[in-house]
């Protein structure tokens, strides 16, 4: 048991190093995309009990605006970028160089700006993971969703939930000119991708 806990801790440390490096690439991409305004840092790589995952991630029962990218195929996973309504609108407005839209409905242009943000972040992470494991990953097109954050998170966690009551999450924080923003990115690798990452990390050690 103690040995298993130690292995898990070692694995989390390795994954944290890996995702710190991937986040560096993602941050550079975000910085270019937002004209130097937004950067990202790795917040945590951790295992969370399934039953408390929504509270642990801090989505509660809030309605959120999200962009989801999934990895298709055996090495799968999901990247979920989450904003509350106000923050999502603000990001879209700043990317489009417009005033914040007060209409209830999101315009196609606003949706597109947020989806492209998800795409840029997702591709930066996927490229970094591909380099490490030396295998191809197949990302989906970004998907715009306005719904309960917990509902979307559940779907992203399904492949891990089959095998375990604990789930592995990588959480990323956004910053604007040094200040932390209340936006969230959660990356959930499926068990096959976790194994591939662990093997790659082991080979590097």
């Amino acid at each position: 048991m103690i040995e298993h806990q130690s292995e898990t801790a070692t694995s989390l440390v390795g994954l944290k190093e890996l995702f710190t490096s991937a986040t560096h690439d993602a941050s550079a991409a975000m910085c270019r995309w937002t004209n130097g305004i937004i950067t990202v840092t790795l917040d945590e790589v951790r295992q969370v009990p399934l039953e408390t995952v929504s509270e642990a991630v801090g989505v509660g029962d809030a309605l959120l605006t999200m962009v989801v990218m999934t990895l298709q195929g055996e090495l799968g996973g999901a990247l979920v970028v989450m904003f509350d309504e106000a923050n999502g609108r603000q990001l879209a407005a700043s990317l489009l160089g417009q005033e914040v839209n007060a209409e209830a409905e999101w315009s196609e242009l606003e949706k597109s700006a947020l989806m492209e943000t998800g795409n840029i972040l997702g591709c930066a992470y996927i490229n970094a993971l591909t380099r490490l494991i030396d295998r191809d990953l197949y990302p989906s097109a970004p998907h715009f969703i306005q719904d309960f954050g917990a509902s979307v998170l559940q779907q992203a966690l399904m492949t891990q939930a089959v095998l375990s009551d604990n789930v592995l999450l990588c959480e990323i924080a956004f910053h604007r000119q040094g200040g932390r923003l209340d936006w969230r990115v959660v990356f959930v690798p499926n068990p096959a991708l976790q194994t591939a990452l662990a093997m790659a990390l082991h080979a590097l050690a």
Binding site: L50, E51, T52, S54, E55, D61, S151, Q154, Q155
Partner: peptide
């Protein structure tokens, strides 16, 4: 009472329970 993924919660009136579900 918030009922998380995989949880079962029992209660008697006036207790209420809530949950957020997607594919669950």
């Amino acid at each position: 009472a918030l009922v998380g993924m995989g949880q079962i919660v029992a209660g008697k009136a006036p207790q209420q329970m809530r949950a957020i579900v997607g594919s669950c």
